[in-house]
Design a protein around this nucleic acid. Sequence first.
DNA 1: GCCACCTATCTAAACGATTAGATGCAATGA
DNA 2: TCATTGCATCTAATCGTTTAGATAGGTGGC
Lengths: 334, 334
Amino acid sequence: MTKRADKQPTLADVARRAGTSTAVVSYVINNGPRPVAAATRERVLAAAAELDYRPNRIARALRSRTTGVVGLVLADASNPYFAALARHVEQALERRDRLTLIGNAGYSADRQRDLVDRFLAAQVDGLVIVSAEGGDDVTDRARAAGVPAVYVHHGPSDGRARVVAADNHDAVREAVAHLRGHGHRRIAFLTGPHDAGPVAARRAAWEAAVAGDFGAVLLRCDYSRAAAAHLTRRLAAADALPNALITATDEQAIGVLSGAGARGVAVPGRIAVISLDGTPESAHTAPALTVTRQPLEAMAEQAVELLSGRDPGVPGARAPLVIRRSCGCDGEQD
Amino acid sequence: MTKRADKQPTLADVARRAGTSTAVVSYVINNGPRPVAAATRERVLAAAAELDYRPNRIARALRSRTTGVVGLVLADASNPYFAALARHVEQALERRDRLTLIGNAGYSADRQRDLVDRFLAAQVDGLVIVSAEGGDDVTDRARAAGVPAVYVHHGPSDGRARVVAADNHDAVREAVAHLRGHGHRRIAFLTGPHDAGPVAARRAAWEAAVAGDFGAVLLRCDYSRAAAAHLTRRLAAADALPNALITATDEQAIGVLSGAGARGVAVPGRIAVISLDGTPESAHTAPALTVTRQPLEAMAEQAVELLSGRDPGVPGARAPLVIRRSCGCDGEQD
DNA sequence: GCCACCTATCTAAACGATTAGATGCAATGA
DNA sequence: TCATTGCATCTAATCGTTTAGATAGGTGGC
């Protein structure tokens, strides 16, 4: 009964114990805006340690108008590509000693707006938006609240919002060149149903690369594995599969592999495949996927830098070609 | 210049505009602890709408000592199983109008403790820990701060912490019975290197189910796909593969499939496989995996209920057997 | 011996909400 | 008519920090 254990200790408790004022304690804790005598500093530190004092971030946030929390709005954490991106953003923030509020908008513009509003009410210091396509521009709402916002992977194209994305053009060109190196002349492309955002950029890059080639087919299906598998089975049944295919996303590529496997279609023998995401998972498919790997970590880092106001000035990072087996090479398998 | 647009409007601004005190405004906003005359309420609502007033959750949190934020500590968001679990927890919280602070501890006990401390400093209302194995008990730290904590998937076994986990015993027994139905008598089990937590429970259940069977082999490897693929290739080369295998996790099962594919080993022809996670991904492997699906959504819901102090009283939810192809059945493929 | 100046520290006012207690006013009952 | 009750509202303390301004004590120059 010598100590009241019912409450977390506060600055005032530490001050009392150290025989000083709260101001001095605050100066010590934060290496505050004013210096403190060495002896006093020792007493304060000792008192804080004895009480196991931990500053209340809420109170600090109220007074200093900065929470150390960043909101991360995700289209869909079920998608490994977004999940990996989210993890890198979280780690980049962690490195800067900030916490991450996360929310899944699930491809709904309403829910996205809703989440942003709730994050702003929670006084986040910044907003990272990882959205697929669509979703209106939340930059205005953020700006009104004086909170910096950055889009990653895809953002509104009107130029008013800051967007971090990889250089898709080069990546696609490299993929096409590689397939040509395997002797392919008719290189098909599998895109999504709506074809907006980065996927549209990838398709456009493919169109530019194969311009003039006879028989370069554009295929479309949903972004799910199931849809891609279904499409592949259907094409195989009709003997209409191309000999070389670039898929816009890993999910689709995995679906293609699954569909091919079900119909006994050999990859890369009958159909060579290159995917454009390069999630970790792509290394563990059968056969292992050759991909152009999106530089997720660099993108996350760049986004977080932008939030801090520092403009890294770097253009979109390059997406390197990772050669494995699905293209016809005898690359790494593991 | 008629309005100061530089700041977010506060309660006081609304009160001034509506010609009342801040107390009344607060009562209106929260359907407060005291009633307000209908006419006044209208004026307040109108003023709030005109100013686009949004309550500052930080200030509210400081005063009312509740933030509406829950901390989610994750072992590793790269793992689709944990990622899916995290998503369900986030959604269960969202349904209750709470926000989710997320952090990856990356299998390190230090980082886990660190994250918990930072979440506690941020005054979270509750803590959900999704950890793999190990990691010391953070219940004490949470209890000291008066914050409820729940472990999901796995937790310390000393009974002092609340743990939500599925019923692994029945699931494994069902898997074994199913493989026996396919005529298998020697059913191997692939577990992890350390063999603690839920995986240990699964292994124990397998041991109980195959007790007395001759040639029921216990295999071990890392939880990564690469490790499982490597092991499979090695066993295939030595012609030492079992005819039926239960894997502790989907990741391992996918690795086995990958390794088998690389060596031309037929699944389920040469080796039948059942996995015990049942992540969404398991439906899209080649061949599609037969699994006992962990009831992730129910687990997440139950965990969040526990945080609210309501004890759902339900025992561990059942993990149903989802029959696809890798066991030898002619099940769904998509 | 006095003033100026520096250093180390204290006092107290924010930050924006919540809410118990005080107050004013009208309706009711004796 | 006066005390009583109840309703609607206001006043002000409070949550735990941060930090500008006030203060006290010591030093050195003249």
